[in-house]
Structure formats: C-alpha cells, structure tokens
Design a protein around this nucleic acid. Structure first.
Length: 502
RNA sequence: GUUCCCUUCGUCUAGAGGCCUAGGACACGUCCCUUUCACGGAUGAGACACGGGUUCGACUCCCGUAGGGAACGCCA
C-alpha cells in the first residue's frame, strides 16, 4: 500500500503536468456479445472521469475480430450505454453514424490507418513478415512447455528485410510480427489504480501485429488509436495489465507518448469466479428486463471497486461525478452482490415521484397483461402505499395485480379463511354496505361502518375480522392494510369479486 | 512453468504507523411498531490470510509463505 501511495503521488505530479490538457477518455467495447456489467462499470468510470474534469468521453469499437463481431451486438451495447445515462460525445451514434473529429471510430473501418503504421514499423526494421505456420508455432510451444521456459516464438524470418520477404509473399501468407529487441530492459509505468508497475521486456517474444488475413490485432490497433485519438487516460479491466507491456513497446517504437493507465479490478460472481451466466443476470439489458432502474444500477456498479470520499452509498450519478477521485479505486477484485444491488434499487424506486414510478412500471404491467382504469390521482395514491412493497419494477405486476381489472383467483391459504364460521356472514355484510355506495370509490367512513357492524352484529375482531375482508377483496389473506386497500377499489370491482369468491 | 497483479466481517467497503476495543452498508439473528404481510426503528453476532522483520508502537511499511487472478493467442 505504501509504495502504492508514493507511486500515486508521483502520478499525481504527472497529471498536474498534464492538467492543462483536456481529458479524453474512451470506452472501447468489442461487439461480440451484450454489454456486460463489468464493461458497463468500466465505461461508467471513464464517463465519470470525463464529466468530473470537463473532458470528452469517446466510444471506440474494437471489432477487429471479424469472426465474432456483430453489428447487432454493437447496437444493443450503445442502446444499453444510453439507457444507463452514459452519453458520449465522439464515436458512433445509435444509428452507427460517426460523430467527432477523430473518426472513423470503428476499427474495422480504420484499416488504412493501421497499414500506414505497419509500413513505418516494417521500414524501420521494428517489424517483419513472418511465414511461420500454425503447426510450426505449435511445435515451438510444446517444446517450451516441456522445458518449462516461457514460450517466445522464434521466427527464422525475423531478420529478413521487406524486399527479401516480397518474393515469398507472392506465394505464402504472412503475419507481421513486432521485433522485440528490447533485451532485458524493464518497462515501467505508474498505474493509477495499482501504483508502480514494471515488466521485463523479455517476458514476451516477437508478437503478432497483423494477422495473415491482413487484419491487425488488438494490441496494435489499440495503441495506434489511443495515440491518434489523443486519449489521455486509459482505465480498463485488470486483464489488460500484462498487455500494457506490448502496448508500451509499440508506443516506444512509434514515438508516441503513452497515456496514463489504470487497471481496474475484476467483478466476480458469488463463488468468486468470473461473473458469468450461472450467476444470474450479467448483461445490462437483463438487469433492465428484471426491473432495475438505470440510476440504481449505475450507483451500485460504481461502488464495486470504488468508494466515494464522503462515504455516502446512495449517491446519484451527478453526485458521484462531483466526488469522483481516481485515487479511490480498490485494486482487489470484488464480488457483485445481487442482494445489495436489489436493495439499492428499492431505495431508488421508493424515492421516485409516484407518477414517474408509474410511468416506469407501465411496460412491466402491460406485458403482464394487467389493465388499470384509474386516473392519475388514483395511480399516485396507489403507489404511495404500494411502493414500499416493491424492490424492482418486476414486482409491480405482482404487487399491483389485486388492484387491476383482471379477475383474481383465491390463494389456497386464503381459501381456508373463507371456511371460518362467520366469514360468509361478514362478507355479505360488506356487500350490503357496498351496495349502498353512491360514489365510485369507497370512503374511509364506509370501512368504519362495516367494521362497527361486524363488531356489534357478528362479534368479530382481530384476524377474524380483517382476513376475510381482505380475502373477499383481493383473494389473499396477507397484504396491504384494509384501510389503505379499500378506498383504492372501485365499487363494481369489489362487488364482482365478492360474487366470484362466495 | 515464467512474469505481473491481488488478499480487512458471508458480501461491498472505511482505514495514508498511535484516532482501531477496526467504522459503515447489504445479508442474517433478536426486539419494537403493526390485530396480517411488508415498510420503518432499535439492537446483536461477524474480519485485518499466515510467518518473520522494521519501529517505542503495525490493519497500515519491508521480506517471505499460502491462496486467488491475469498474461505468455494470427481473442479482445
């Protein structure tokens, strides 16, 4: 920790030197799947840094893996980012049209740029055409594993000049490898999350820059793009930490100035394994489908691996941006606790104004096939009492169903309540009173009237009074207080339920 | 195997050598509120991975060990 601290103060000096420079950060998703909460969190931190420092947040699409990249994934990722409220000023918009002066922002459209830099490295002798086949490489790897030494490809072509290779190129495909001539030099950098980091150059060999298909690989294009797009800070997942060595080598070979790096901890599932399907929801759109509020998800994700200086936990995005500080990242990997996420969601949900809540609930109510005829005043009244019972929007249909126009069934536990000796008489008494109603919804007085009559005429009290009434109204023995529930039900609904339940 | 990263209650975390008898939040237990279920309130249990140093003093600094993770791909 101490070396971390001294490292951090050093990096602070660096950032002070760069203080005049406008912060430019990027989120660089690979569209090979849906947006994952891990990726979303990385995007969030970058977004917060840009917002906090008045900089730009850029989306760059890393789609150099032609086999796995899909446009539909990209579209859904962008939509999810938007849903979370993480807006970007440069990159593809929702229709995949580029915005901003450093485009194109999809790497598949930047091949000509990468070719240019490939040529430079080739000419400078810092890269070479390599005709090694997969089989030859595999043999080398096996040999290295058997010897217990790290695998570093040894290419017989590493000293060939471009013109030497030209002839063979006509007949054989070739990849282009970076010529790692750094010997045992140490590559050092100050990680904003982890402090001073040092990699020996000889921990890797000559790595591939361009596939034999002509498509350049991640470490190469990432470096070129970060440099060309004038990215000042790269906050990305820890799994990229060791890649930084390759990228640092490329920065040096190309005379680019590296940005500041920060390698974020990984998010794990409850079994401390990498978050995956079997841990439940992992994609942002799944959280959306499960009734999570974007503002709650954002708040929660931010707090897995980062803490606010104030120590507040319920912290809306705007407040987090106010408090954002890159010194407060926790380098240890962290478990995504669904329980706590759900709790946080409930806090945001209950803090929403009732009509706004209803608006957010609507898609869930509709897809559950529920209809509500009440006006806005009624909806607001409903949610004042019912939002306490919801943690996610998905709870809406469950909790609100008793108030809908939908016919209800009596739960088996409630069925028993109806067999109590005076239950039927009580319900008939209620029916009698409801029949006398002149207004659309019952008044509080009416309930008092029913209770009083039940006490005097039937000698009922306690659960023998409350439960049968509740069962007659909503088919359930447990739930909302009768005095809150009763005024929310329309006269005709009450009567039809009494009929069907008797 | 090699290199690099990580290690505070079950979980997320606070902690910058004495403020630590280690604080907060989620989850859990108990009690209160409530003639039900929840909400809410109070309260309890619960952690510095281990071993050596350094220091008057170590959760905090250094070194090991153990455990976890990443990279060593013509994946990103």
């Amino acid at each position: 920790m101490e070396n971390n601290n001294s490292a951090k103060s050093q990096s602070d000096q660096n950032s002070n030197l760069n203080a005049h420079k406008k912060v430019r950060v990027r989120f660089a998703p690979s569209p090979t799947g849906y947006l994952h909460v891990g990726g979303a969190r990385t995007a969030l931190y970058n977004f917060m840094l840009a917002q906090a420092r008045g900089g730009e947040f850029i989306i760059r699409v890393e789609d150099t893996d032609e086999e796995r990249s899909q446009v539909d994934f990209l579209k859904s990722m962008l939509a999810d980012l938007k849903w979370l409220g993480l807006d970007w000023s440069e990159g593809p918009d929702l229709n995949l049209q580029d915005m901003g002066p450093y485009g194109p922002y999809r790497q598949s459209e930047r091949k000509h740029i990468y070719q240019e830099y490939t040529q430079i490295l080739l000419q400078k002798g810092q890269a070479y055409y390599c005709f090694l086949t997969d089989e030859e490489l595999e043999r080398q790897r096996e040999k290295a594993v058997a010897k217990g030494v790290p695998f570093r490809p040894e290419s017989p072509y590493r000293n060939w000049t471009v013109s030497q290779a030209a002839e063979k190129l006509k007949t054989s495909p070739a990849s282009i490898r970076f010529k790692n001539d750094f010997g045992s030099k140490d590559f050092k950098f100050t990680d904003k999350v982890r402090g001073e980091i040092s990699f020996p150059a000889d921990m890797i060999g000559d790595f591939v820059l361009v596939r034999s298909s002509g498509m350049p690989v991640y470490n190469f294009v990432c470096t070129i793009d970060d440099a060309l797009m004038k990215i000042t800070h790269v906050f990305r997942a820890e799994e990229h930490l060791s890649n930084t060595l390759k990228q640092l080598m490329i920065y040096e070979a190309l005379n680019f100035t590296p940005p500041e790096f920060g390698h974020l901890s990984i998010m794990l599932g409850s079994d401390r394994q990498k978050l995956s399907k079997r841990h439940g929801a992992t994609s942002v759109f799944e959280f959306k489908a499960q009734g999570y509020l974007p503002e709650a998800l954002v708040n929660f994700m931010a707090l897995v691996g980062w803490s606010s200086p104030s120590g507040r936990e319920i912290l809306p995005l705007q407040d987090m941006i106010q408090e954002f500080d890159t010194d407060r990242f926790n380098p240890a990997s962290a478990v995504f606790d669904t329980d706590k996420c759900k709790w946080m969601n409930s806090q945001y949900l209950r803090a929403l104004p009732e009509l706004e809540l209803w608006h957010r609930l609507e898609p869930f109510l509709t897809s559950a096939g529920l209809k509500f005829l009440g006006n806005e005043a009624w909806k607001a009244k409903v949610l004042v009492t019912y939002k306490q019972n919801m943690e996610t929007l998905l709870d809406g249909p469950i909790v609100l169903k008793p108030l809908s126009e939908t016919p209800l069934v009596i739960e088996s536990e409630a069925q028993e309540v109806l067999t109590w000796p005076k239950s039927k008489a009580l319900i008939l008494l209620m029916k009698d009173e409801v029949l006398k109603m002149t207004s659309e919804y019952p008044s509080p007085d009416l309930l008092d009237q029913i209770m009083n009559r039940a006490k005097t005429e039937l000698d009922l009290k306690g659960k023998f009074l409350f439960m049968p009434l509740r069962v007659a109204l909503i088919g359930k023995a447990h739930g909302t207080e009768i005095k809150d529930l009763f005024p929310l039900l329309r006269k005709d609904v009450i009567l039809s339920r009494i009929e069907s339940f008797l």
